[in-house]
Nucleic acid binder design. Sequence first.
DNA 1: GTATAATTTAACCGAATAGTCCATTTACAC
DNA 2: GTGTAAATGGACTATTCGGTTAAATTATAC
Lengths: 227, 227
Amino acid sequence: MPGIPKNGDAAPTRRKISSRATSWTQDPEGVRKDILEAARIEFAEKGLSGARVDEIATRIATSKRMIFYYFKDKEGLYIAVLEEAYARIRGIERSLDLATSPPREALELLVGFTFNYHARHPEFVRLVMGENIHHARHMKLSAKIGELNLSAIDTVRDIYMRGLEQDVFREGLSPLDIHLTITALSFYNVSNRASILQAFGHDMADKDAQTRRCASVVETVLRLVSK
Amino acid sequence: MPGIPKNGDAAPTRRKISSRATSWTQDPEGVRKDILEAARIEFAEKGLSGARVDEIATRIATSKRMIFYYFKDKEGLYIAVLEEAYARIRGIERSLDLATSPPREALELLVGFTFNYHARHPEFVRLVMGENIHHARHMKLSAKIGELNLSAIDTVRDIYMRGLEQDVFREGLSPLDIHLTITALSFYNVSNRASILQAFGHDMADKDAQTRRCASVVETVLRLVSK
DNA sequence: GTATAATTTAACCGAATAGTCCATTTACAC
DNA sequence: GTGTAAATGGACTATTCGGTTAAATTATAC
C-alpha cells in the first residue's frame, strides 16, 4: 500500500484533501461550473490556441481529467464557454424594457446599456474577438448561439419605427446599420484598449474616460437618427 | 529497431546524398521578404499562437531554418510583421493631402480613406486584433511602432481646428474622440465580419454592403461634428 | 584558385501539451 | 452490507512544434 507518500516540498495542495487514498465529495454540477468559469477566464485571456487545458485545471481544484470527462475536448469546452457568454448578455438584454420609453429615451437607454455591458465585460469582448479570428467557426457549430442575436435587430427596429411614427427620427436608415453603429462604438474601446493605450497613452478602462466616451457615443447615435 | 546505424564505419545507407537539391542561388533579401509575406498571411489568419512556423516555411520555397536565421525566433518574426504592417498604412496615410481641402471635404476624405483601407486590408485588421489579444505586448517591444500612430490624431486635430475657424464644426469635441469614432466604425465591420455574418446573415465583405456602410459611416461622423 | 564568410538544407531534439488509461472513491439503490 | 455506476485523481502517452546541430553549397575577398 503506497499510503505514505507525503513530502513537504512543492505540491501547492489547493483545497480538498490532497494525497491519494483519501476522500473527496462528488459535485458534478459544481465541478462543471468551476471548469466553465476558469475556462472563460483562460480563453478570454489567451484565445483558443493560446489557452492551456492544464492551466484551466490548475486554476480550480480539479484534475485535467475532469475537463475531458465533462466537455469531451478543448473545443467542446470552448464552445460551451461561448454559449454561456452569449446566454448571459442575452439574459440581461431581455430584462431591459425599452418599449415603454419614448423613442429617443429608449435609444439612449439601449446605447448606454450596450456601451456599458461591453465596458464591464471585457472577457465577453475578447471571446468574440477570438471567435472572429476563427471566422466564427464555433458559433456555427453551436445551434444554441445561432438564434441569439436575431432579436437585437428587432429591438432597434422597434425603437426606430416608433421614432418614425412620432416624427422624431429621420427616414431612410436601416435597423442593421444603426445596430452596427451602436455595437461598433461600444466594442472598439474594449477590443482595442491595448493598442489605443499604447498609441495614444489614453486608457479606455479608466472610469472617467469611459463616462465621457459613453456620452459621446450616445450623442453620435442620436445625431445619426435625428432629423 | 529501425535500423539507423550511428557510426559511419561501414554503414551503407547513411545520409541520402541522392535526392537532395544540389544547387541553389543565394538571395538573402528575397528570402527575407518572402518569409515576411508568408508570415503576415499566416499570423493574420491564425494569430501568434495559432500560427505554425513550419507552415510559413512550407508556403514559400525555403526551409524552416531560414526563419530563425533571419528573425531569431517566432516572436521576432511576429514583431517584424507588425512593424511592416504599420509602416504600410503609415506610408499611404502620409501621401494623403488633406490640408488643402476645406474641412468638411477633408473629413470626408479621411473617413473614406480609413474605412476603405480597413476594408481592403483585413489582414492588417486581424493583426491588430491579435495584438490586442496580447495586450499590445509586441507593440511595446517595438520602438518603431511606438511613434507611428501619433500623427493620426494630429491629422484629425488639424481638420477639426480649421472647421472651427471656418465656423462649420461645433465646439467642444476632442480630436481623440473623433478619431476613435472614425476608426471604430471602420474597424468593426472587418474585425467582426464573421460574427456579423453568422448572426445576421449580412456579409460586410460584399462590395455593395461596403459602399453603403461607408456612406453611412461618413454621414455619422459628419453629423457628429456638424453644428 | 584558395581561404573565408554568408547562406541554405536536412535531420534531429527536447519541451510542451492535448488527450488517455487505470485504479480508486463516492453515491446510491436494494 | 453489497453491487454498481458515476465521479475523481494521477500517472502516462503520443504528437506537435519551436528551436538547434552539423554539414553542404554559394559567394567573395585576396
